[in-house]
Design a binder for these strands. Structure first.
Lengths: 391, 391
DNA sequence: CCGCTTATGTTCTATGGAAGAACTAATCCG
DNA sequence: CGGATTAGTTCTTCCATAGAACATAAGCGG
């Protein structure tokens, strides 16, 4: 049993500080009076909370705007520009480090394309560590890092990367290997790449919800990762291993998958499988696939991928009741080609489709979205409990 | 935007009242000092909160126990016996009304077996209303009803039952039809039968968590309903339509389903489909199916059901990362027969199985579990905000 | 140009809930 | 029967918010 602590006076304060900070982050520049109105507090209380956040650097006072309005002009409040979070990513095709501030702006970044399939975990993570340390060294003075996150393409359990099939890694204590290179106390919290990339769809900046808050995200890399997002929260499951949409069975009599099972979605819509079925070389850019859709073999491969996605995703939508599928990674590039067939299948196979037609969206393939998501996640601690940073 | 109200002093009080009530509900008889220890408050504060709950009837003081211990004997505190909730259920085979108290005891119940397939919604709900009204009339004086819930075998949207295939009902405003029969102000909140039955696994009594808190529940009736439970919370999805495991596709080239799709799980492991495949009459009790497992046709049907469950559930487990599958309804009776084959398939098809082997459990088929779950859900309001009942 | 209006932000006191310490109560033990 | 021990109560202090009054900084209109 985990005994839940009762709320005390100080709990009230920290919970209200968090609320005010989230309000400012969510709804752009606001005055103290706006904050009071939105949180239902008096201007006195709102002002006191805001002042504490400003003193701690979590909220900045902007310059007076030139908006001609009656009354005393408001002081615009913005999320603190001097609070940052570090997001790291290792993927089959890249190393990335990115620093976001509380406003969601990229303060610094370094993305390095490289083929890391079958690479040495320690060596690769050392490289990422050096890269990250260099990035941090060049940061403007006065920027305080609130935390770090690390997006990994595989199953993560606690601080251990259990298995990353695309990299060929198993049992890698990634945070340990990275922490040695980073300034004292900065330990990146690892997470699944698809889960973290999905966050960049759910939230456009720390504490700022995006338009789409309930969706199934698909991250097409070599295989297919996924994440279900409900009310803006990524479902990580009971051990953090959720979202393996790529290994949902489409046809039990289908081709063998490297996971040991048969007929996995990945064997139809994964990048490798799709290119192979289309008769194209493994490295072929997907724009070329789309361009050559007229060729029978390419067309058939795309149709098969759409059909497989339809069967697998319909099952997921039936179980989770999500209104939207968001295609990311390489699937985003194929979205327009896949959509008609996919949407039709979803409408037929999803039980609730006659009341709410499932939609298929695509997100422009932001490079290293996982790194951004990792930074967003690292910022969660600040948003959840700003009081701890104020002392 | 939904403006979240800030916490005030009174929020503190109500949140701590709720915490104390949950603590008493979760951990059986406790003294005021126990409550203080578990909530991290001082004995003074815990006693004040308890006293308020006792005054409001939400907590009862028990008799002194004959436990020979040093020091002043404690006053045992128990969930209030005079607070009740009504749970109703309509299913293809029964009507049920059940009243639970805060301790989770059945205060009164009435379950009526009947074949309601193709019945008239208004007439049937009138019958249930009369049945419930009779039950309430016979309740011990002094029992206060905190709310009512209604378990329905279909898609529920707000107060409307959109579609219940097993009953043949569509667009039924069930709560309206029932409220007319019930005492003033008691409006049953409808919910999906499988979701509510799953609650009876997650919680053994109001506010008292069961052992299994993360699982996929399968409710085999005529078709197959389901519910995913994470951390004791049922995932209802973005519109409450989640859990349609019966319509996950097992084989896209499989038999047509009444839902309009093909190869749905229900077509292999649903009660009707299973009996048909085994060459038995639709009404055959499942004990007989198990007894005749030696007959080739019956054995093959059970194997096919296990295989279909394996394929479909592996997909769900891959996406949701749940460690346990709980079989309820008619599937519980078949659990021992299905388990070996099903567990083996899950181990092969679930990506995380090599780190945590999925388990298949069965719950004894409590009659009208949905009604119990509906009562549990109706009690949620009291547990979440006891202050409202205290005034 | 000056007072009026309007909206923002600040100061001060009151209120309510929890912390902490001291106290009382009820039982066992030697 | 007195000390030890645990349960429950009383009283004061502290602290965060509410509420009201006040100060500030603009635009507006004569």
């Amino acid at each position: 049993m985990t005994p839940t602590p009762a709320a005390r006076q100080s709990t009230l304060r920290s919970s209200n500080l968090a609320l005010v900070l989230r309000t400012v982050c969510a709804d752009g520049p606001l005055s103290r009076a706006d904050v009071a109105a939105r949180t239902g507090t008096t201007r006195a209380t709102a002002a006191r909370l805001v002042d504490e956040l400003v003193a701690g650097g979590l909220v900045d006072e902007g310059e007076r705007p030139a908006r001609p309005r009656r009354g005393r002009p408001a002081t615009p409040l913005l999320p603190g520009a001097r609070v940052g979070a570090l997001g790291l990513q290792v993927d089959a095709g890249l190393l990335a480090a990115r620093v976001l501030d509380l406003r969601g702006r990229v303060v610094a970044e370094h993305v390095e394309d490289d083929d890391l399939v079958g690479s040495d975990p320690a060596g690769t993570l050392d490289r990422l560590g050096v890269l990250a340390a260099g990035l941090l060294a060049g940061l403007p003075a006065g920027l305080h890092l609130a935390g770090a996150g690390l997006a990994l393409p595989g199953l993560v359990d606690g601080d251990l990367l259990l298995r990353a099939p695309n990299l060929g890694w198993t049992d890698v204590p990634a945070p340990d290997l990275l922490a040695a290179h980073l300034p004292g106390g900065l330990r990146p919290v690892p997470g699944n790449e698809a889960d973290l990339a999905a966050r960049t769809v759910a939230d456009t900046a720390p504490g700022r919800p995006g338009r789409t808050r309930d969706f199934l995200y698909l991250s097409g890399q070599i295989g297919i990762g996924g994440a279900a997002v409900l009310g803006g929260r990524v479902l990580t499951g009971s051990a953090g291993w959720a979202g393996e949409v790529g290994h949902v069975c489409v046809d039990p009599t289908g081709p063998a998958c490297r996971c040991g099972s048969t007929g996995c979605l990945e064997q139809y819509a994964g990048r490798h499988a799709l290119l192979a079925a289309a008769g194209l070389a493994p490295g072929t850019p997907l724009a070329e696939v789309v361009a050559r859709i007229g060729e029978p073999r390419v067309g058939r491969a795309l149709d098969a991928a759409a059909d497989a996605l339809g069967v697998a995703l319909a099952g997921v939508l039936n179980v989770l009741d999500l209104p939207v599928v968001v295609l990311g990674g390489h699937l985003a590039a194929l979205a327009d080609v896949l959509r008609p067939r996919l949407e039709e299948l979803l409408c037929r196979r999803v039980l609730s489709a006659r009341w709410r037609r499932p939609a298929v969206l695509a997100v422009p393939g932001a490079p290293a979205a996982g790194a951004t998501g990792a930074a967003l996640q690292a910022m969660d601690g600040v948003l959840a409990d700003p009081a701890r940073r104020l002392g």
